[in-house]
């Protein structure tokens, strides 16, 4: 098929579907939830209060879960709610708590290269949106048939076609678990042995070099 034939086919296909000026109900809901998600994401990356950033991240991730539901990917939506909203954000809040994040606004939340970051984000957003709109302007998703992303369908696809990657992923999760435990234990194991008492791992660094010197000498 030549390019012009493909173009004609795309135009004919687009003519068979409603345009952007007559959106369906699902599209209206999708755009509204998308605006809320995008707003929550923008507040997440711009707010000065660290804990509020985590809470706005919950709103953004929940909005993405609603978008999954609107795209009929039911199982992914609930996995998103369970894993992201349920555990990842809780982990992030624990991380904020353990690094003694201030409750109030912290003025140095943004680094000095903020204008460069803004320029990079705007340029990439303009490029990506132009490209994506130009490429998929005429593409239509058929959401008609029910149950395409239901738990049954997704589970059958996952355990028929993707068993080996699934098992490899479980090994990866185990490795990540062990790695996190090892990373967390190393500082604790070095501290009681150095004999300098409290004061964090900076003193344990001295202890380690001292021990290294003994080992070399």
């Amino acid at each position: 098929m030549t390019l012009t034939e493909a173009g004609h086919g795309a135009v004919a296909e687009a003519a068979a579907h409603p345009g952007f000026l007559s959106p369906t109900g699902v599209e209206i809901v999708f755009v509204l939830v998308g605006l809320a998600t995008l707003g929550a994401a923008v507040v997440t990356v711009t707010t000065k209060k660290l804990v509020h950033a985590a809470l706005w991240l919950v709103a953004a991730l929940g909005g993405v879960a609603v978008e999954y539901l609107l795209l009929t990917a039911e199982f992914i939506a609930w996995v998103q709610v369970l894993i992201y909203v349920g555990s990842v954000v809780v982990l992030l809040l624990f991380g904020l708590m353990l690094t003694k994040a201030p409750i109030g606004p912290s003025p140095d939340a943004d680094s000095g290269n903020r204008p460069v970051a803004l320029a990079a984000a705007l340029v990439s957003a303009a490029t990506l949106v132009t490209l994506v709109v130009d490429a998929f302007r005429t593409t239509w998703i058929d959401l008609g048939t029910t149950g395409r992303g239901s738990t049954r369908v997704t589970g059958e696809a996952l355990f028929r076609g993707w068993v080996l990657p699934f098992e490899a992923l479980s090994v990866l999760l185990l490795a990540a678990l062990v790695g996190a435990i090892v990373l967390s234990r190393k500082g604790k194991a070095a501290r009681p042995g150095d004999g300098h008492g409290g004061g964090g791992t900076r003193t344990s660094g001295h202890g380690r070099t001292g021990r290294d010197g003994e080992a070399q000498g």
Binding site: E27, V45, N113, A117, V132
Partner: peptide, 24 residues
């Protein structure tokens, strides 16, 4: 539903995340 809606939303979310990674 047009594929452009989720694609554009994903592109914008990605760029918001990019700004956050660079600026935070």
């Amino acid at each position: 539903m047009h594929l452009a809606y989720p694609a554009v939303l994903a592109a914008l979310l990605f760029c918001v995340g990019l700004y956050g990674v660079l600026a935070r």
